[in-house]
């Protein structure tokens, strides 16, 4: 299966998730234990009306989805996954009106647990918006 086929299947998978669809998530890339998913800025997702910055919860949802996708994309082929724990560090506010992109990497996996790291970026890719580390279940 080619990479574009895999990305297309992942996009269908994401669109079957109501919350991911509601946030307008798009699968940009999928590799071995790695995923890149992005979503657009929207007025109704604003958490701070003074600055127009999206709510931290939106970044959480994007990070969680992207980390889960990275686990599912691991070559060992997990059947399904669920979040055990997720920590997010907010380094700066995402810029108003810009797309947010999450990049996740499943850097270690056992028979039962997957360990994942992720970053969230806006158009200023040199300065990450947030970083995440998480542990996920692995259902074989």
């Amino acid at each position: 299966m080619s990479q574009t086929d895999q990305t297309r299947i992942a996009q269908q998978f994401i669109e079957a998730i109501p919350h991911a669809r509601a946030l307008g998530m798009r699968v940009d890339d999928l590799g071995e234990g790695a995923a890149t998913i992005s979503m657009p800025w929207a007025e109704h997702l604003v958490g701070d009306p003074r600055s127009g910055v999206v709510h931290g919860g939106v970044v959480s949802a994007l990070m969680d989805t992207c980390c889960g996708a990275a686990v599912m994309a691991h070559p060992s082929g997990p059947g399904s996954t669920a979040t055990i724990d997720l920590r997010i560090d907010y380094m700066r506010s995402a810029n108003k009106g810009q797309r947010i992109t999450a990049k996740a990497h499943c850097y270690h996996i056992t028979r039962t647990v997957a360990f994942v790291r992720a970053v969230a970026l806006d158009e200023d890719e040199e300065n990450p918006v947030a970083a995440a580390t998480g542990a996920f279940t692995v259902e074989r």
């Binding site: 079957a16 998730i17 109501p18 919350h19 669809r21 509601a22 919860g57 949802a61 969680d64 669920a82």
Partner: peptide, 19 residues
Amino acid sequence: EKLIGNPLLPAIHGGVTAA
């Protein structure tokens, strides 16, 4: 319905819980 993360179970999205 838009809060769902796993339509098969179904379960609320982990990101929704975090938010």
